[in-house]
């Protein structure tokens, strides 16, 4: 599903964020990406979603070489990836329903289909009753679940999460992670960046560790 081949990313101001990064993630896999802040976790995820391009090396997603992907195809590439952010990136002036519906509206689905799928996604994250609410009226954990519903509503084969539990207490974090496990059970590939090592260690999933932009640990699934 994801293949990094000797990937380097250098920022003019900050220097090298990733250096000589190579790894492969199979379809249907669930993995955690850990490391200190500034280790390059976000950069790695941004390269997969084509929010940025690598300075050197190749990134392949779903068999597609991102280096040769033309500009106008980028939106279609992003539709196959659900992205979840620490600050959840919700639109404060739109209802929960409208926020979750955004990927489907963008993809040009019909009203009925949108309604059906949005409610299914909200049901999965346990927020079906709050579809009319606005994000500000929700708690932090609920907001993050809305963000997750938005990421999975279009049923993308790959979901990326950047510190999804960064602002949540351990109980809520556990809840979010069990949500991710359920998505993984139906075949979704997930890559989750987090520095919540305790939680990650307690779960039976592959862990990729970044240190200063280099891959310094990979449990490779043989935990």
């Amino acid at each position: 599903m994801i293949r990094f081949e000797h990937v380097f990313k250098r920022y003019p101001e900050r220097g090298e964020a990733l250096s000589d990064l190579s790894f492969v993630m199979e379809s249907g896999e669930m993995a955690f990406l850990t490391g200190h802040s500034g280790a390059g976790k976000s950069t790695l995820l941004r390269l997969i979603g084509l929010l940025e391009r690598p300075t050197r090396g190749q990134v392949l997603v779903n068999g597609r070489n991102l280096a040769t992907l033309p500009q106008r195809k980028i939106p279609y590439h992003r539709r196959e990836i659900g992205m979840i952010f620490q600050d959840n990136r919700l639109l404060p002036d739109r209802s929960v329903f409208d926020n979750v519906a955004l990927p489907l509206v963008v993809a040009g689905l019909g009203y009925k289909e949108i309604g059906r799928r949005v409610r299914a996604a909200l049901d999965q994250v346990g927020l079906l009753a709050r579809e009319r609410a606005h994000p500000v009226a929700l708690s932090g954990g609920e907001q993050q679940r809305v963000g997750i519903a938005r990421a999975v509503v279009a049923r993308p084969p790959l979901v990326l999460a950047d510190e999804p539990t960064g602002n949540l207490d351990p109980d809520l974090s556990r809840e979010i992670f069990s949500l991710f496990e359920r998505f993984n059970q139906v075949g979704v590939t997930l890559l989750i960046a987090t520095h919540d090592l305790n939680l990650v260690m307690s779960l039976p999933y592959r862990i990729l560790t970044l240190t200063g932009g280099r891959l310094t640990g990979d449990t490779g699934g043989d935990w």
Binding site: G49, L51, R72, P75, Y76, H77, R78, R79, M83, R89, L91, L102, P103, V106, A107, R150, A154
Partner: peptide
């Protein structure tokens, strides 16, 4: 955000 979720 619309660009993130794949708006053309």
């Amino acid at each position: 955000i619309m660009e993130l979720v794949g708006a053309t």
